[in-house]
Every structure is written in C-alpha cells, then in structure tokens.
Design a protein around this nucleic acid. Structure first.
Length: 642
RNA sequence: GCCACUGUAGCUCAGGGGUAGAGCACUCGAUUCGUAAUCGAGCGGUCGUCAGUUCAAAUCUGACCAGUGGCUCCA
C-alpha cells in the first residue's frame, strides 16, 4: 500500500517505483540517472504521450521517451512548429495562426498573412527560430476554461473558430513558449533549446481546414531531427529523390514526354512504349489462365452513367462529348471500365458453373482532373488501368481474395517492391444500405484475415460502392505508393441487375470484385522509374544490348551480331557512330543500357563479343555470340532483378 | 479550381529596357580508336502566347497557356 503523499508507478521493465506525490516525469528521469534526464523528451503515461513537466498519476504505467524513440520525434517536430510560429509572430505580429502539426517527414504551420512568404522570408524566419531556440524558453502548459481561451485568442478568428468546436467535456490547454501562446493539446519538448537540427523547406498555399471554399492560408513546411546526421541524411535523401524523379529520368532516358497541346496525357517514345508493352505482356502472361481479356468502347451515352451513378457524382471529372444530332453533351469518354464490363456480363446468361468469371481490360480511360492536380506520370488525364472485374458467388469471396492477394504480392515481388495491406471501410459518401455494407465489410475482412497477412485499418476510406483492400508499396528509397486494390461491390450488381443461374435453376445476384494491380500503367511506370532510378532489370530495359564496333573495320560484323540478337527477341541497338570507343561506352553507361557487346578485331574473327556489364566497369568477358544471346534471353525470361 | 514560383536554342542553364550567350546534343571534316567525353568548323532561338507601357521590350505591366511546389482531389 502506498502511504499518503506517495504514488506508485510501473516502469517498462515491470518494476514498480514509489514516488512522492507531485513527482513529474522530469523528476523521475533525474532520479533514474542524469543521462536519462538529459535525453528525456516526453513521457508515456498509460500509453499516452505527455509533457515531462506534468505530475505523474498514481498507479500509472509509464515509459520515458528519449530522442531515440520514434514517438519522441513527433513531439520534437510539433514543438518545432510552435517555434516556427513563435518566430513568425515576432516578424509578423498580425499573422493569424492556423494549425501546426507534426507530419511524417517533418512539420508545417499555417498562417493567415496578407502576403505569401518568399524564400528570403523563410531564411529570415529560420534565423529568428534559431534565436528562439537559443533563448531556451520552457514550454508551459496551462489548463484554461473556455472564457479564458476566448479572451486569450480574441484577436485570432482561426483559433476562436477552433475553440468553438471543442466539446464541452474537452480540456482546453494552451502552451506558452516565451512570447508565443498557442491553443494546443500538446505534448511538447521541455524547452525550445531542445530543438537543435531543423530546416525550413518551402512555403505553399493551403486552405483553412483543408476546405477549398475557405480562405487560403500560407503554409510553411520544415523538418527537424534530434541528430545532425539524421537531418543531413534526410536532406540527402531529398536530393536523391530529386535526381531519380521520373520526370528527370524519363527525359534523360528518352522514355516519354508531354506537350502543352495535350496537358495531362503522355507521349510514350519508342523506348517507353517498349517498357509499357513489357509490363502489359507480363500481366497477360500471369493472367493466361482463368481470365478473359476484353476490349470495350471508350465513348458512351450518358444513359450508362445515369445507371452507374457517375452522371450525378462524377460528371465534373468526365470529358463530355457533343452529339451533333442532339446538340447536347450526351456522350462521354469513359473514366473507368466497370460499367462496360457489366454490360458485357449482362449480354449473356451465366451459370453458377462459370463463376468466378474474371474480365480483364487495359482500355484507355479519361478523367478530367483539375489542372492543378496534374503531375508527371503520377497524375494524368488519360491512362490505362490493368482493370479486372470478377463476378462471383458470395461463398467464393474468401478463396478469390486469397488468390488475388497472392497474385498481387507476387507481381510486386518481381520488381522488388515490398507491399503492405490496408483494409478500408465505408466512407461517408456512399451508396447502398447499411445492411449491405455490414455484409460486404464482414466478408472482405473475413477473407483478408484468412490470408494470414498483417494489415492496417483505414476506416472511412472505402470506395463509394464497397469496402476494399489497398496495397501500398515501398520503393527503393522508402517512399510509399498506393497501387493495387481489391474492392468488394454488392451495389453495382443491383444497379445493373446482374444475375447468374444457380444450381436451383433460379436467378441469383453475383458479387463483384474490382481489382487492379498496377493502378495505372502510367503511374506504375513513374514509380518504377523512381524505384530503379532508371537502372531497370534486363527484361524491362528499353534497350537491352548495345553493340559497339571498335572501329569501322568491325562495322559489318557488329551489324550481323545486332541482327542475331534482335532475332533472339532482344532489344539490341548498334552504335557505329564515328566517335571513340570511350565516348560510346560512356554514352551507353549514361543511357543505363544493361549490356554492351564490344566487337574488335579479335571478336569479329572469333565470332565472339567482349561483354561489358552496366555499372561494372572494365571487366572483359569474351563470349561466343550464341552463348551471349542465350544468356540474355534466359535472363529476360527469368525477369531477374539484376 | 485555389496560393506561390517558373517558362531564353533538342537538353542543362547564363544574361537582361537599345533587337541574344555557354556547355552538351546535332551536321560536316580530320581521326579508326580495346572499355566513362579526340580535335576543328558549322547549323540552330526573336527569349511560352497575346495585349499594354515606352522613341525602344526578350528584359517592365496585365491576361492567357503550360510546368513545378503545395491545398483540394486521387489510379
């Protein structure tokens, strides 16, 4: 039993400590050791992160967070945002204060100011932040009542709006660091001096509350770390990401281009087209068995979209086409394949024996994205999905989801992409009854759990017609991309009155699964370019071999070799330009060509080539042409990563 | 669509109120070369588009178009 004025807390190693009532996290850290006292950033009390300065409650299980704890980084960054606001308020005393959270890669803060911040402003603000850090102001937490909160933020309508939305039972807290007071739930680092390594990165406009009908605030992005090296590494990684940006690499390697006459639509060069065809070929190969590939129209009468519901919900995103006979925009380019597959399904009577019936289509889709949303290959107006719709019976869902999940994960593995699964449930904007959603979510979740794979829950993130499993992949430099999806749909079978004849000779309603693996070829290509930084595996390389005669005397021999490699199905090119061998080797290395076949006097006479492997420098390997060709075709076939 | 920034030869970029410059690429010539840039010469743009200010605009202003970073949205 604890005596009066004593409390007991449990530490992570399960040991129990008796402390004087009123002991704070900082006191406890100091009791345990001076090293910990210095390293402590915040404290976890019953799983909740709190300030070190708060008194510990009796009976709590606690853990002191040091700068090595990932949770502590969020605290640091959130405090960095406050320090940013502190600096901005000193330089711009009238600036309104929006939100300033920690985010994955750093932090931001939104300000209501009459003029956007310039890069020079950011430098000045950063300097001011350094002064705030040097002052080492403590972060002071205060609990205030609503009246007091309104009084303190009387001059800031953004904060007043936020206060007015807080529930009656919510504790209102404010944090003060030196001259700056902010409405904030915390927690924070003990004092501003703990922020050592940070950098402001950019300014940008951002709507208040993320609502495009509200005022535009000026957001400042920055990042912060506990260790100097971590910050340096992060900045280096940003540089690296910039270098492998698919728009840069795509130009260097001559894969695709854009033109102002077709904003948001890709022109694939010969080399880029070769890659797209490889991707598509691989998908076709994987779906040789059990799938039916279809081609369907691109242009549809609006009657179809009225049934599908897109005319109401999605019209702004559709390219409408004028019908000269009616003078109306009665037609539209399809923004998705689903309805065309339903029409194909409807066209015949189906037996339960055919199910699951898998339709796959690579048709071109058009979505009229707002101009500001377009971005390289990742967001375009015209694209191709590897779109598959599966019509099946409810009792087949589990096996099918299992099959699809394995399929998708195996596909990503070919590229060395690691995937994580997310389960997304009903969104606010949706069609269908709650009962239908209960049913759909239960089946999909059950099927997902039966795969035994770990997954993350994303409530409210489902499609408007059903819950889904999303596949996020992580690329070579640790960035995440949402790619594949498995969506369960009980709604469209109703809308389109889809049926199959059961064993009982009666009509039944199938369920639909929507499935994509790449998402879109365009975006997937963008991701692959950045993932591989242009150094593609052989099977995917736009140019697989470059044949280099050492001098004109070997030009004929080299030409014959090139043709033999092409006959073997390899993308081989001859570089017989009148330039030095060194020059042409450099050129091929920069073009990331996986193999160079160099032909000199000796090779021409011996029916061999001197093989140079991309990135491996001068390591001569003299190989018979047939052997070389076979080696490469095998490597292509295996789709090996390197 | 909204906020900001950017838009000069095929590419990367410099310049900047008096009608444009570099490197690479390209063409030609010389060189015929053994594993990451041979030498020389030449071609090439009216400075995103359209207006306006000015004696004079690529340079200043405005609108529009496109791109970039964000917001919104999303494959």
């Amino acid at each position: 039993m604890t005596t009066a004025n004593q409390i007991r807390v449990t530490l992570p190693d399960a040991s129990v400590r008796e402390l004087a009532e009123g002991t704070t996290g900082a006191d406890l850290a100091a009791q345990i050791g001076p090293g910990l006292a210095r390293a402590a950033v915040a404290i976890k009390v019953n799983g909740q992160i709190q300030d070190l300065g708060r008194a510990l409650p009796d009976g709590a299980s606690i853990a002191i967070l040091t700068d090595r704890d990932p949770d502590a980084l969020g605290v640091l960054r959130h405090s960095a945002a406050h320090i940013l606001a502190t600096a901005v308020r000193q330089l711009y005393p009238d600036a309104g204060i929006g939100f300033g959270p920690a985010i994955d890669e750093g932090f931001y803060y939104d300000f209501a100011v009459p003029q956007p911040f310039t890069p020079e402003d950011l430098e000045e603000i950063e300097e001011k932040m350094n002064a705030v850090v040097a002052s080492d102001f403590p972060f002071l937490r205060e609990v205030v009542d609503r009246k007091e909160a309104n009084r303190r933020f009387a001059d800031d309508p953004l904060k007043l709006e936020r206060i007015s939305e807080l529930g009656a039972d919510e504790t209102i807290t404010v944090y003060t660091d030196g001259p700056f007071v902010d409405l904030c739930r915390g927690p924070h680092i003990p004092s501003t001096g703990r922020l050592k390594f940070f950098k402001l990165l950019s300014g940008a406009g951002a709507y208040w509350r993320g609502d495009s009908s509200r005022q535009m605030l000026q957001r400042i992005y920055g990042t912060a770390f506990f260790k100097k090296d971590d910050l340096a590494q992060h900045l280096t990684r940003m540089e690296e990401a910039k270098k492998r940006d698919h728009r840069v690499v795509g130009k260097q390697l001559d894969l695709f281009l854009f033109h102002p006459f077709a904003p948001g639509s890709v022109f694939w060069t010969e080399r880029g087209t070769a890659m797209i065809n490889e991707l598509n070929g691989y998908l076709r190969e994987l779906q040789r068995d059990g799938y039916q590939e279809l081609k369907t129209p691109l242009l549809y009468n609006k009657a179809l979209w009225e049934i599908s519901g897109h005319w109401g919900k999605y019209k702004e995103n559709m390219f409408l086409v004028l019908d000269n006979e009616t003078g109306e925009h009665d037609f539209s380019l399809k923004p998705m394949n689903c309805p065309s597959h339903y029409l194909m399904y409807q066209a015949k009577k189906h037996s339960y024996k055919e199910l699951p019936l898998r339709y796959v289509t690579y048709d071109v889709l058009h979505r009229n994205e707002v101009s500001g949303a377009l971005s390289g290959l990742t967001r375009v107006r015209q694209f191709q999905q590897d779109d598959c719709h599966i019509f099946l019976m409810e009792r087949q869902i589990q096996a099918e989801v299992h099959r699809l999940t394995q399929f998708i994960l195996a596909f990503y593995k070919t590229f060395g992409l690691k995937a994580t699964l997310k389960f997304a449930t009903r969104p606010e904007q949706r069609v269908g009854t709650d009962q239908m959603w209960d049913e759909a979510e239960r089946s999909l979740r059950h099927a997902l759990e039966a795969t035994g794979l770990p997954y993350e829950l994303k409530p409210g993130d489902g499609a408007f017609y059903g819950p889904k499993i999303d596949f996020d992949v992580e690329d070579a430099i640790g960035r995440k991309w949402q790619l594949g999806t498995i969506q369960l749909d009980y709604s469209n079978p109703e809308r389109f009155d889809l049926k199959y004849v059961g064993e009982d000779n009666a009509d039944h309603r199938p369920v639909i699964i929507h499935r994509a693996v790449c998402g879109s070829f365009e975006r997937f290509m963008g991701i692959l370019i950045e993932h591989f930084a242009g150094v593609f595996p052989l099977w995917l390389s736009p140019e697989q071999v470059r044949v280099l005669p050492i001098s004109d005397a070997q030009a004929d021999a080299a030409r014959v070799i090139t043709l033999r490699l092409r006959d073997a199905g390899l993308r081989a090119h001859l570089d017989e330009r009148n330039d030095t061998l060194n020059y042409r080797i450099r050129d091929a290395e920069l073009a990331k060509v996986p193999y160079m076949a160099i032909v000199g006097q000796r090779e021409a006479e011996g029916g061999t080539v001197a093989v140079r492997v991309r990135g491996e420098g001068n390591k001569q390997d003299i190989v018979n042409v047939e052997e070389f060709s076979a080696r490469l075709t095998n490597e292509v076939k295996s789709r090996a990563l390197s």
